[in-house]
Each structure stands twice: as C-alpha cells, then as structure tokens.
C-alpha cells in the first residue's frame, strides 16, 4: 500500500477508562445539541462471571477512511476527503438521501431529523475538528483525554508508534492495528486487549467496501439500464394497453347512453 501522508488518531483500549471527557469536549467544541452526539462509547460493559471479569470501552467516531464509502455513495458530492485526513461533509449540498448511512461499514453518519427538515443539515458526524487542527491544536476529544487513550498526529508516526507498542508489549495487546488496512485503511487506529468485534468494530478486509460497491456498480448500471429498457418497454406496453382499454371503456360509456337515447 502506498504511503499516505496525513493526520490520524490512535486509540488504545487498554488506557480508556470510559470517563467520557472526549464526548463532552466534542459536544462543546462543535456546539452539538443536547440530545445528540458525535462520539459514542462502544463495547462497554462487564464480561465474565464474578470474580473473573473483564471490561473494555471504545471511543467511537468517524474513522476518516482513506477511501470513504460515504463519499462514493453520495450522489451529490456532499462528502470530501481533505488531503490532510479529515472526511468532511457539506450540509449545503446534502439532499438527505441517507445513502452514506447505508454505505458506511462503521455506521457513523447519522441523520438529524430535527435540523434536517428546517435547516437543510441532514447528516452529522465527526469532522476531525478542522477548526482546531488547522491552527495546530489537537481535536477536542484528544486534547482533553486524561489517560492518553486518544492520541493524534501524523498517520505514519502513529502507525509506527502502534506497531512499536505491539512489539514491546506482546502480552498486553491483540497483535493487530485495527484501521491500518481495514476498509482500505483509515485515519483511526485502534489497539486493544479484547477482540475488536467486542469493541463494536466490524471485521473488514483490506478491500474497501467502496471498491466492492463500485464493482457492483459497474454491473449495476448496464444491468439497470437494460432492466430499465425492459421495464420501459413493459411500461410502454402497459400504457398502450391501458389507453386502448380506456378508449374502449369510453366507447362503451358513450355508446350506452346513445343506445338509451336511441331507445
């Protein structure tokens, strides 16, 4: 895979204490309504039987994929991938079709039912805080994390750091950097002591869903066109048939009174 030069997050599940400072920081920084959130904590809960217990938590927000499915699914180009990492959403372009929600393998974009209809802002998701990173600050969630469970930096540096940790402390982690290759690579890396599925992360191949969907689309369009032609033919036939039927019916309608009149 070619080297990608841009920013990324690293999340270490062994250090997250589920305190939710990141969630509050994000909500305040991005002026999120009180009944909404751009970050959620997944994989929470105690597993096992007393006293053999385990607990994990994961700070979940947009993975900022290298090849974002939301972007490729969007019919109006409301999404873009900035060269420095963030996947950005433009509410002005959005038409509220919600294809991105279905396309994202991580279930990240969510629909804003209240705002959408009134203000035309249908979708909400993490932006990587461009207003902060553009002036050299860390995203709000990272900046406040009291246990360094969240880190932010150059993607290459973080990836090296993550692999160094796996090498240095093999007993501590599952030997995998989630997000390095998943879905074609993301800008959010996860280190964990519990299986990634338990953190709510889907098992994905390195082929982005986008490529799969694009392959499907290659077939889909000719297929759709062909099928469309067939349907158009059928529709035309039905139309002709119906018109004929209507015309016959009219004949009957008009002829009957005539007949009566004749009577």
């Amino acid at each position: 895979m070619t080297e990608i030069k841009h920013k990324a997050f690293l999340f270490d599940a062994t250090r997250c204490i589920d305190c939710r400072a990141c969630m509050v920081a994000c909500s305040v920084e991005n002026k999120i309504d009180m009944d909404k959130t751009r970050i959620w904590v997944a994989g929470v809960g105690v597993k096992g039987v007393f006293p053999e217990l385990q607990r994990a938590s994961m700070v979940y927000h947009c993975m900022h994929c290298n090849e974002p499915d939301c972007l490729s699914a969007c019919p109006v180009g409301a999404y873009s991938k900035r060269p420095d990492g963030p996947v950005i959403y433009d509410p002005k372009k959005c038409i509220g079709c919600r294809y991105c929600m279905n396309a994202c393998p991580f279930g990240v974009p969510h629909f804003d039912w209240d705002k959408g209809l009134v203000e035309g802002a249908f979708i909400d998701k993490c932006t990587m805080c461009p207003q902060r990173i553009d002036i050299g600050l860390e995203p709000a969630c990272v900046a406040t994390c009291p246990t360094d469970a969240l880190m932010f930096g150059e993607r290459d540096d973080l990836l090296k750091y993550a692999h160094d940790r796996l090498t240095a402390q093999p007993a501590r982690y599952i030997n995998h950097v989630y997000g390095e290759n998943e879905n074609g690579g993301t800008s959010y890396f996860i280190l964990s002591h519990v299986p990634f599925e338990e953190l709510g992360l889907p098992p994905l191949t390195s082929t982005p869903v986008k490529e799969v969907s694009e392959k499907v689309m290659e077939v889909t369009i000719p297929f759709a066109l062909g099928w469309g032609a067939v349907l158009t033919g059928v529709a035309a036939g039905v139309h002709v048939y119906n018109q004929k039927k209507e015309a016959d019916a009219k004949k009957v309608e008009t002829s009957e009174p005539q007949t009566e009149e004749k009577k």
Binding site: A21, A25, A140, A143, T144, P146
Partner: peptide
C-alpha cells in the same frame, strides 16, 4: 464557549475530566 486544560498547570497538564469539560 469552551474550556481547555491549562498545559502549564500541575493539576491538569492540559487535560480536563468530563466534569471540567462541562
């Protein structure tokens, strides 16, 4: 509009907990 931990302060070192953030 926002509170940040002061990196120069020995008790926050740039971080705030959820209560501090809110």
């Amino acid at each position: 509009v926002k509170l940040e931990g002061n990196p120069d302060h020995p008790h926050s070192r740039g971080n705030l907990c959820p209560r501090g953030q809110s």
